[in-house]
Write a protein that binds this DNA or RNA. Structure first.
Lengths: 354, 354
DNA sequence: GCAATCTACGCAAACGTTTGCGTAGTGGCG
DNA sequence: CGCCACTACGCAAACGTTTGCGTAGATTGC
């Protein structure tokens, strides 16, 4: 209210030049003489001039803001991704508006409205778990707002996206268990309409088949990937005539529940049952034993998605075909899946610890 | 690029009224007749009109955006707080820009610049761990941008803030341990220039004194509250002539480290050593045994802080004295601190579980 | 019947930038 | 000297809203 912030015209008056000259000087236009540029810059610094983004945005037709819709930001994955997004965006001179859908389509829809209302220049989305259709995104596309998905996407729609190779992740995880001598490997999977869970399961099945092992229906648990789902799932598995000797879970969360049940039943991990999870959550290093998990280098995903979005924004109007970026996940081997000889174990642990 | 979005003047032309009339009709001015208002609203809906926030912001001198600076958004606490902030802000028609300082003053300073550059109308801050001075905030105040701190604040500065009663939290935690019969209670504390850690420690000391127990220097560990600090701290404590029989930690993280060390040494929790943490992190329910912790109802804090900020913004210019809101924390009793009779234990657990 | 009040709307300026176009002044070239 | 190109800058419009003020026309009061 009190202090009027210095505007470009204030600078202009004090320097006896026009506003246009100041504007051009500040943006480093070469048609402005070296001398004037320096005078302008000096005064700008002296007065603590800060350009008014809204005015600039209004004039140029863009806001320099990017919108992000994620299911939630607690947990390791998305908060890291967001960090990557912020880093890349801010380097390109963009601000970031973050919305949480709380795994609800309804919220997701609202978030999109919010972001469009805020005049963002582009939107990054990772779908909520309950999103099965594309309608609310059509509106975004109709407005020609560039859109890039990451991690959780709806397949079969023509949109750019950054994903990790979930199939490879599932494959490596399962293969690792097989190499450790586990043979009856169960799988906890998430909602199969989501690409990530479907692919992780595919990788799991591919690895089994490659080793000539059957894919047993009874060893498959499709759930919501909560900790409690892991409890329930593990209980069921233990009641099977032949319980599994290992689990590859598409999330670390279920694994914590499963681990609890195993302990209740006096089963040892990794000796009796091997465990491999997905996402490399923070707490995966805190359980006893520590959980082997698939790391997705989340920050890189955030950066990649942002770069793809910025690129798409530049190519606006050309309507190029959507692009897909696929990142390779990493297996982080920890105690929960290691029952080979101690020497080999020690070596592996040393390699991948942290 | 392609579709030009409908503007207020487009509506005006199609309805043969002036832009001002449309503007007023949309904002529900009573000087506009019922009939015109309805026609305007109808057409607006038909054309999918969305007001241009930047233009409005430019004219009205505000952006309808709030800025938030937090140390990080991983972990339970801040992500929950942010959720509360978003809820309250969006209800009041504001968008939220989130910045992470990564516990670094330098970043914090940059974040503030970023937010001021983005023309936010108000700023919410929780200080980074390394912030010991106030200089970079003076700039914000000079621009008369309303500022509200939450949780981590610098004391002795005239600013509005929302905090929890950390002293009470520390007091209740320690008292609970005393009630469970523990007598030699150690404390893991964070950097004492931060209000939260200082107060938690005060509560701890108050409880001890109240029970006529000494506050032993050797039982005090001031550290950065990382998991590894808990490991180191616990190791040191176990080498004391008389090791403690319980720990009240100002963070759940250190406790996980401590727990690991205790297990290494074959000590049982809660039988040999009782543990109470702070923040009620997600993983506190995942350890074995589950950790008793102080819950801060984070979302409420986010909402309160936002309300306080919005209120401050309304009272701009009146320069009222800063206000402080103090929230009461909750003790969540779990297995790590319960060594009383099973019946009592069961009752307590049932009450506070989940 | 006329002033006063009220209703419902229009005019135009303003917010701070950006940018296409125009133009003084300068220097070079034939 | 005339012409052209070039440099360095100014003019003014435009972006889409909001809002103080002005004003037709209708209504009321006396």
């Amino acid at each position: 209210m009190a202090k009027k912030r210095a505007s470009i015209t204030d600078l202009a008056q004090q320097l006896n030049v026009s506003a246009s000259t100041v504007s051009r000087a500040l943006s480093g236009h070469r048609t402005i003489s070296e001398a004037t540029t320096q005078r302008v810059v000096a005064l700008a610094k002296a007065l603590g001039y800060q350009p008014n983004n809204m005015a600039a945005g209004l004039r140029r037709g863009r806001s320099n803001m990017l919108g992000v819709v994620v299911p939630h930001i607690d947990g390791n994955f998305f908060s890291q991704v967001v960090k990557g997004i912020e880093a890349a965006a801010s380097k390109a001179g963009y601000h970031v508006l973050i919305c949480q859908s709380n795994e609800s389509v309804a919220h997701e829809r609202e978030n999109l409205e919010t972001l469009m209302n805020a005049q963002v220049d582009g939107i990054l989305v990772s779908l909520s778990r309950t999103t099965r259709e594309f309608r609310h995104f059509e509106k975004v596309r109709k407005r020609d707002i560039p859109l890039v998905f990451f991690d959780r996407i709806l397949e079969g729609h023509d949109v750019s996206a950054v994903v990790i190779d979930d199939r490879a992740g599932g494959y490596r995880a399962t293969k690792h268990l097989l190499e450790q001598g586990y043979r009856r490997i169960a799988h906890f999977g998430g909602p199969q309409h989501l690409n990530i869970y479907k692919h992780r399961r595919q990788g799991y099945e591919d690895a089994l088949r490659e080793h000539g092992l059957p894919v047993a229906e009874e060893l498959l648990t499709i759930c919501d990937m909560k900790m409690e789902d892991g409890v329930a799932g593990m209980r069921r598995l233990l009641q099977l005539p032949t319980p599994p000797d290992a689990i590859f879970s598409a999330s670390d969360f279920t694994l914590v529940g499963a681990l609890e049940v195993l302990k209740e039943h006096g089963l040892r991990v990794p000796e009796d049952v091997g465990l491999v999870g997905f996402s490399n959550e923070l707490f995966s290093r805190l359980t006893e034993p520590k959980l082997t998990s698939i790391d997705q280098h989340c920050e890189l995903m955030g950066r990649s998605a942002t770069h793809l979005l910025l690129q798409t924004m530049e190519e606006q109007g050309q309507h190029l075909p959507p692009r897909h970026v696929v990142l390779q996940p990493n297996l982080c081997v920890r105690a929960s899946s290691l029952r080979l000889a101690p020497t080999a174990t020690a070596r592996l642990l040393a390699e991948s610890s942290r």
